[in-house]
Amino acid sequence: MYLSSCLEQLKAQTMTAEPFARRDWMGLIARAPLTLLDAHWPDDAPAFTWLRAPEMGAMMVQGRAGAVGAAFNLGEVTVTRASVRLGCGTVGHALVQGRSPRKAERAALLDALLQTASGAALQTRVLAPLQDAERHQSEGRARRAAATKVDFFTLVRGEA
């Protein structure tokens, strides 16, 4: 399935805009917990070759003085990166949060597959649940935060 779909890659690229742009899916996958990636992993994932085997490392996170001023180094965050090539030549990259070669492998492979003609199906099958999970988590935080929002009322002095 995947090899033939690779051949249609060019065709896919000329189709109408996908709901997820590449930069968005790469970020979504990078931030997702590995358990979730595993849960939605396609069983028929194709063979690939490594362009860059998974490598653990760190990215320096920067902040800004006073939130808007000069950049400064806040501290590092662990990451893992990897790059793969499918049989058809499509290349996938990954830079994911945390130390997990398997997560980086899956992310790079997904990045490649999402660029092929089967990408549209994978958007529904993998990206949609990842996005739902992230949205659910974010909404939960927002709802709990909203419940702790303060409603001030001012006491009038000197009146009983």
Binding site: G57, R64, E76, T78, R81
Partner: peptide, 14 residues
């Protein structure tokens, strides 16, 4: 022991 791959864009705390 970790190689540094690079630096982030400064985070937007806003």
């Amino acid at each position: 022991t970790l190689p540094r791959f690079g630096a982030s864009v400064p985070v937007e705390t806003g």
